[in-house]
Design a protein around this nucleic acid. Structure first.
Length: 467
RNA sequence: GGCCCCUUCGUCUAGCGGUUAGGACACCGGCCUCUCACGCCGGUAACACGAGUUCGAGUCUCGUAGGGGUCACCA
């Protein structure tokens, strides 16, 4: 069985890079009927916060990725780590190092000056004398000398490094006794039964260290997949400057969670020419072997396009449900289906939908200057009055857009006008600007009574303007 | 700097020794049209560079250049 995990450290929100590796892990596990686990890496008490952990969980909930079983918290597993540190100590695979921080810093500085790679010199590796009494020691693991660590990465291929070149006897327990990252990760991954580790390739250089821990305990290695990072649109490393990195920010901007996932899954992975995937299709087609080796810059416009595509095909019920978050309650709106169909072709986000819907649903409080200048010419007032009059006396039924179409046709016929002569006047009367969906749709949505009021208001506005 | 990784249109990518190098976003035309969109049709645009291997290289090998990651008592 395949077991994967996502293991964020709770230092802030869940960002899109993290979501992508989480998604990959999720897909790979689920497609193989395996398990996807979530582990919060909160060993560094100073930098972690409970809110951050909650924020991550909230984001997971929004996108709909559900972990199997309970969430693991490293802070609750300290006993396990300590036990294993002791075990290595007892077996002589790790040792106490009494070098003080100052001494270490001094050594590092010296090495840098000599243009050498800073590295612990192993002075306590085989120490047998009496240790200094005023130093709280750290625990270091014995990394094999002059050995080549080779592993096969599912994305990058075979990777091998020489221990002497990249590693020293790294610390597995700080002087206060708390365990360090590369150690706890290994312990947890082993006991959680993780078979496939999919993570960002910034962890590539940690992998040999973790392999040393696996070997010290004699454990089998999992499969590793190191996925390249996501770059900003300029092709540089993603930073807070680049705007929305927090997954929840996408909710606020009106993106659908399945769109974000779809967008992310295609960033660095592909299945032929397919752009749009349902969750079922992702599960069917995803395979980490198809993940690209190089980093990819994200393209905000493509995300927008994708969101628009999904919105075009969304159900009425879903609109009603999602738009509540954007302060738009469609329940009481009689012509909501016409509203939705009129707007879904014109918006790219739910937020935009809400804004545009409100310009129709709410009476304009002002009229856009440019539109007024361009379309409300000398005879506009006259035409508007004629239309208002015609509307008031119109005795056929007015309900659907096509009813309004008939109204307009007969009106134009009677006054010998063209559609162009009246369309923008009606539009400005209803929404206050020269841009909106079809006038037949918006007339139907606001209804006859409201239409009369809005036309009257516009006429009044034109009269005041002329004075 | 050491070590490791990467390199096809502006961007995401297809390609897996023989292709007019394909698709998508964006961009530019055109059609549709009551505005704005949608939609439809068409177009511009790429194998980082240099050597090999081969009858033949975007595809294999080696260099070069460029980009990135990492070198903590952070994760």
């Amino acid at each position: 069985m395949i077991v994967t995990r996502f293991a964020p450290s709770p230092t802030g929100y869940l960002h899109i890079g993290g979501l992508r590796t989480a998604l990959y892990s999720y897909l790979w596990a689920k497609k193989n009927e395996g398990k996807f686990l979530l582990r919060i890496e909160d060993t560094d008490l100073k930098r972690n916060s409970l809110e951050a952990a909650k924020a991550i969980e909230e984001a997971f909930k929004w996108v709909g990725l559900k972990q199997d079983g309970e969430i693991f918290y490293q802070s609750k597993r300290m006993d396990i780590y300590k036990e294993h540190i002791q075990k290595l100590l007892d077996e002589g695979k790790a040792y106490y190092c009494y070098m003080s921080k100052d001494e270490l810093d001094a050594l590092r500085e010296e090495q840098m000056k000599a243009k050498q790679r800073p590295r612990y010199d192993g002075r306590y590796r085989d120490f047998t004398g009496t240790p200094p009494s005023d130093i709280e020691p750290v625990v270091r693991i014995k990394t094999p000398i002059n050995e080549t660590i080779t592993f096969s990465d599912g994305i990058k291929g075979e990777i091998s490094v020489k221990t002497d070149e990249v590693m020293d006897d790294f610390i597995i327990a700080r002087s206060d006794g708390t365990p360090t990252y590369n150690f706890v990760v290994t312990i947890d991954d082993h006991y959680m039964g993780i078979t496939d580790i999919i993570r960002g390739d910034d962890h590539l250089s940690n992998t040999p260290k973790q392999i040393i821990v696996y070997k010290a305990f004699g454990w089998d290695l999992p499969k590793f997949y190191h996925v390249p990072m996501i770059l900003n649109p300029q092709g540089k490393k993603l930073s807070k400057r680049d705007g929305a990195m927090d997954v929840m920010e996408y909710k606020k901007e009106g993106y659908l969670p399945e769109v974000l996932l779809n967008f992310l899954v295609r960033l660095g992975w592909s299945h032929g020419d397919q752009e749009i995937f349902t969750m079922e299709e992702m599960l069917e087609f995803f395979d980490p072997k198809d993940i690209n080796k190089s980093a990819s810059a994200y393209n905000a416009q493509k995300l927008l396009w994708l969101n628009a595509e999904f919105i075009k095909n969304m159900s009425y019920e879903r609109f009603e449900k999602e738009l509540i978050y954007f302060d738009l309650d469609l329940k009481s709106i009689e012509k909501k289906e016409i509203l939705i169909d009129a707007l879904r072709q014109r918006v790219k986000t739910l937020k935009e939908f809400s804004q545009k819907a409100k310009t129709i649903l709410e009476r304009p409080t002002s009229y856009e200057t440019k539109a007024v200048k361009k379309f409300l010419k000398a005879d506009a007032k006259k035409i508007a009055k004629e239309f208002l009059n015609y509307l008031i006396n119109y005795d056929s039924n007015l309900n659907t857009p096509s009813d309004y179409d008939k109204l307009i046709v007969s009106f134009l016929e009677q006054y010998q006008l063209k559609l162009k002569d009246i369309a923008q006047i009606i539009r400005i009367a209803i929404v206050g600007s020269a841009v909106s969906p079809s006038i037949y749709d918006i007339m139907s949505i606001v209804g006859k009574d409201e239409l009369e009021i809005r036309i009257k208001n516009l006429i009044q506005f034109m009269e005041e303007k002329n004075e």
